[in-house]
Design a protein around this nucleic acid. Structure first.
Lengths: 234, 234
DNA sequence: TAGATTGTTAATCGATTAACAATC
DNA sequence: TAGATTGTTAATCGATTAACAATC
């Protein structure tokens, strides 16, 4: 028996999917859903890449991390590839989700059809505002009543929810986060501008509605600077 | 006179800020705003990095692309660094913004305080729904009336807006995008799930409210797979 | 001066890309 | 078989990191 060489990397050692690839899978998934709805049966890497806004080389590389699900000379079966991507992302199982903070943003999130269609089922809506508690919100065709935040523990317990969404004002976010973590939520999506402290083992992702706007402003500014420079030069 | 070596890279040839760095500037900006509000005068790279959730080496590298705004042995003046980051992002100038689609999400965006405080001023709210047109929305302390989408051209013309936000349902997004582009909007922030076609020269960034949730599900699934593997092994 | 912290260097790591062998 | 397209390779590129010289 010979000595086997050490694995090149610790992180992506065993069949792991690179972060950059995981970040693009939702986009591929969305494009395939659209194609599937149109009745498309087969798709080439060139076509799917074009629809997703990436290069075909990148697309094929990304898909190769999931497995070998295409046919050389032919392409990919839309339904089959769709299923494999959904499976890789974890969308073939049901994920009970609780949402806290039912203002405008919370309503928008609760009503977003893209959640239900991807296996996320909203099992609880919570707020602390007495004017909002008791309100009925229609989520994926079903009516859900907004409950007081104090009811969160029993809902998490009874539904086994592990994912929580924070759509509260800034100053409430950390308390809500702590409450979620204490009650067994292990993945948190945070729409409040605050950076939240979570214990090790809990995943937190933050979506700042203003970040992309600032990046647009950066590019817009650069465009006009370049225009000015060229005007002076020419 | 000697022959000078060719520049290493074409893209970042002349003082350009790397994309990865630009993506983190809004976060540094936010942390500095918080510190400034607390009356903090000086901050070290270690402290700001900790607050921003990055390593201090990465933070110093990022800041070094903007210029040399710290003092060795001392740290960074909060107000000064805040200004320099704002300036790099383009936030020291006023950006008139139009928002189309004033449902729950549009309301949430229009009411988001983080827009006004960063130099974005909402100069127009538009919808096609006759039940929404005429509604008054309070934006940054001022009342704005929702107008019919057909009024967008004159508002863009009179305000010089170059940034547009799309918060419509999926099926309206491309038409709204085309209308914006025809009328001189050159940067678009798209909250509809659709990938939009824009002509060359127009910047488009898309925020999918479900993407991060899917990435969370991916990691959550992986966590439970690991837990199962370990349980079987041990 | 002694202590502290920046700004920069160089090594490493991960992501992207083009090209093409494999194979339908 | 001829044509098409995948899956993989290897080169390149960009981002991250640790270490430390510069300097307050």
């Amino acid at each position: 028996m010979s000595v086997s060489p050490a694995p090149k990397s610790r992180v992506n050692a065993r069949g792991a999917i690179p972060d950059a690839t995981v970040g693009r899978l939702p986009m591929y998934h969305r494009c395939l859903v659209t194609m599937s709805a149109r009745g498309v049966l087969l798709v080439s890497s060139e076509e799917l890449a074009e629809a997703s806004g990436v290069s075909s080389a990148k697309l094929r590389k990304d898909l190769s991390f999931l497995g070998s699900y295409g046919t050389r000379g032919v392409g990919y079966e839309v339904e089959f590839l769709l299923y494999q991507i959904a499976r890789a992302l974890g969308l073939t199982q049901e994920w009970p989700v609780v949402i806290v903070g039912i203002g405008n943003l919370g309503h928008a999130l609760a009503g977003y059809p893209g959640f239900a269609s991807r296996g996320f089922s909203v099992v609880g809506l919570f707020d602390t505002d007495v004017n909002r508690v008791g309100e009925t919100v229609v989520v994926a065709g079903k009516s859900i009543v907004v409950q007081d935040l104090t009811k969160l523990p029993q809902v998490v317990m009874s539904t086994g929810a592990s994912i929580g969404v924070i759509a509260t004002p800034e100053n409430a976010a950390q308390d809500v986060c702590d409450l979620m973590v204490r009650n067994g939520i292990s993945s948190i999506l945070n729409f409040a501008p605050t950076l939240l402290e979570v214990p090790h083992g809990v995943d937190m992702r933050r979506v700042d509605l203003a970040t992309e706007l600032q990046i647009l402003a950066f590019h817009e500014q650069r465009k006009s600077q370049i225009a000015m420079t060229e005007a002076n030069a020419g």
